[in-house]
Amino acid sequence: MNPSTDDLAPAGTGRARAAKRRPAPAKRAIDRLDGLLSGAVKTGLWVWVAMLVVLTVWVVVTSLKTNGEVFTDPFGLPKSPQWRNYRLAWSVSGFGQAAFSSVTVVAASALLTMVIATPAAYVLARVNRRSADRVITYFAIGMGIPAQALVVPFFLMSNDLSTFMTEWVTGWWDDRISLALIYVVLSLPFTVYLLTMYFRSLPTEIEEAAAVDGAGPTRTFVEIMVPLARHGLVTALVLNIVALWNETLFVLIVVGDPQQRTLPAALLELYNTMQYTSNWGGLFAGIVILVMPMILLYLWAGRRIVQAMTQGAIK
């Protein structure tokens, strides 16, 4: 868990070995090859990036075309941009409602996950007990259980919950609340694991100083550790938001009414009816509606994710 000093030893010896192993002429040839290779890889990376940009631009341009143009002129610009594709996708194909469901369900479950996982991860990272390591492993097992293994029981439980709440407690229920709760459960193992690793990478001196100053553990946690860990917390939050935003399987299974479903399900539904509607421009508008929020989120938080990883979030 401690980088720096220990790790340097093998690298040091390696470096020494590398330096004295090869005679000069052969080495020059290899160096040239090395330069060639790295040139090729760099070019490859830029091509890779270019492909992504081209694809994105192409999707956006296609979303503004008429059906005819989508097929007859796949790479041209639309004669006049068909903004109605968006209007139709938003209102007729239900992307407006779906966007509302996506935002509320994902926001609620991602935040609730953080509230539950953060304290647990903190104590798991800091408490020196044997059981802590076992509990961490116990949570890590959950990361390896495919969500598909939980489809059947979750379906049964969400039905029971709905019936129970309607008949005994509130008089109403919304499948999207069940979905949000399922999302919390599904996100928990990964979030606890990730945050535990992150808290471990943070220095202990500050907490010790706080303890010396007489701060209790709760105050230390809330006022010192949480702000200190904010990069890790944002990373976990963003990774969860991304995963949940794109989740499709459980929406289809838990939420019965298509009008309450989230964006990926709306896109799939639109795609499935393409043979009846042939609204290709609208399909691409749907893709843009589904994908854009994540790109914007990434533009905002991408640097932080990379930063947090750099600080050892995933190690």
Binding site: W48, V53, W58, L290, L297, Y298
Partner: peptide
């Protein structure tokens, strides 16, 4: 820049990517 661009596909819905 390259690094953050490479990361983009894994934040996008596979359904959206597959469809396009």
């Amino acid at each position: 820049f390259v690094r953050s661009m490479l990361f983009v596909p894994c934040i996008l819905s596979p359904i959206a990517i597959g469809t396009a």
